[in-house]
Amino acid sequence: MSETYEKPQPVIDPGTRPFWDAAREHRLSIPRCRSCGQHHFYPRELCPHCHSDDIEWIDASGRGEVYSYTIARKPAGPVFAADVPYVIAMIALDEGPRMLTNIITSDVEQVRIGDRVSVRFDDVTPELTLPKFTLDKD
């Protein structure tokens, strides 16, 4: 945990606050539509599948698989320079939705599409926790 975290921090708004509040409590919370039963991510006011407004928040399993990934060989700005090379991955959560995140691994070269992953919470500041993922095979 660093007092001088200089990377981009989410500008949390009323529609996204439940996700970030849950992350601080080390829960991966995502919206589920009571009308069609499907989950979605990022959180929206209307279900992007059936457009119902009957949405609830549920705690996701925190498990999924790598849908795609890239290894950043050049950083997304100077604040990420010390992390290169690092993995940005799109995870297909077991509940269905995909989310962008990082995969934390000692060997970025070992990541493959289809790898099983589990959430790990990174408390980057006292106020902000980022859900990241680790490879089950790691």
Partner: peptide
Amino acid sequence: PILTMQFENVWGI
């Protein structure tokens, strides 16, 4: 990192 982008930029993509 506002609105939808708060779920993209924070990961350093």
